[in-house]
């Protein structure tokens, strides 16, 4: 028994090493004086200084965050409405059709989504840049939010709605005072998923950006192509740390909600 467990831990350890080693390798050389990733000659923060003095880069970071926040807020709103629509669809065939349409968007490759958005935007004459990137991000985030919210709705007993109606609630009150509070954990999960999807999207953004507008992933890609500068490493390190912070915040959020209101999933798990 003990032996089995040690083997399992060793395996797990190896997997994590393989996954994280390149990242730590990259982080390590972001402190390298030599400016290469071959041999370490001494510690420096020069590359970080370079990142922070790079005005263009700072603008891109801010743009990336703005696109991520805006697109995840809007897609969360749309996704919740969508999930409610799917939930309240009575006809089985219609419900399945809606769900399939949603899932197809989830599984289709980014390249195809990106290319088709490029075609769409050029067709209807939307200038490539901030707006096109924002629209594309909203579009690929909505299905994610729907998928995170829908299970919460299905978990909700339909008698909650009956009970609220019975106690005098109009449809609006039922939605605001019963349904939305119940699915709040799903809404948060959807929001954070949309946020991370938007932050690290490369393929779709690569297709639909233009006119001098860029996001971090696209920028890092183009810089890395021009020749490796350790400022890219420094930037990647910063992004990694920020992502880690978001994951931790999300973790505390979902745990906190689960604990404070230990209903449905909370208790049973």
């Amino acid at each position: 028994m003990v032996k089995k467990r040690t083997w399992a831990s060793i395996y797990l350890f190896c997997v994590f090493v393989v996954l994280y080693l390149p990242i730590f390798y990259l982080m390590f050389y972001s402190f390298n004086k030599a400016g290469t990733m071959t041999h370490f000659t001494g510690f420096t923060l020069d590359w970080y200084k370079e990142v922070f003095s790079d005005k263009r880069l700072i603008v891109i970071v801010i743009d990336t965050v703005i696109v991520a926040l805006l697109s995840s807020v809007i897609s969360t709103a749309l996704g919740v409405v969508g999930a409610l629509a799917v939930y309240s669809t009575k006809r089985r065939s219609a419900k399945n059709a809606l769900l399939s349409l949603n899932n197809i968007l989830m599984v289709s490759p980014d390249v195809i989504i990106g290319a088709s958005f490029l075609i769409l935007f050029t067709l209807i004459g939307i200038k490539l840049g901030f707006v096109s990137v924002l629209l594309a991000h909203i579009a690929f985030s909505v299905p994610i939010v729907v998928l995170m919210v829908l299970p919460k709705l299905q978990e909700m007993s339909p008698t909650f709605i009956d009970a609220a109606r019975d106690l005098g609630a109009r449809r609006r009150d039922v939605l605001l005072k019963v349904v939305l509070p119940f699915i709040t954990p799903g809404i948060f999960a959807g929001f954070f998923m949309a946020l991370t999807y938007s932050l690290d999207d490369f393929a779709v953004t690569f297709f639909v950006t233009g006119n001098g507008f860029s996001t971090l992933s696209v920028e890092i890609y183009s810089r890395a192509r021009q020749g490796i500068s350790m400022s890219v490493n420094a930037l990647s390190t910063l992004i990694f740390l920020i992502t880690l912070a978001i994951v931790l915040v999300y973790y505390f959020f979902s745990n906190g909600i689960g604990k404070a209101k230990s209903y449905s999933g909370g208790r049973r798990v």
């Binding site: 007993s157 008698t159 909650f160 009956d162 009970a163 609220a164 109606r165 019975d166 106690l167 005098g168 609630a169 109009r170 019963v178 509070p181 119940f182 709040t184 209101k261 209903y263 449905s264």
Partner: peptide
């Protein structure tokens, strides 16, 4: 007449208490 306009209240079989309250 919809349920919210009736002077009738129900105790449901599964209680249907709101878990978030």
């Amino acid at each position: 007449i919809p349920p919210n306009k009736r002077q009738v209240n129900t105790v449901f079989q599964d209680y249907a208490l709101f878990p978030h309250l």
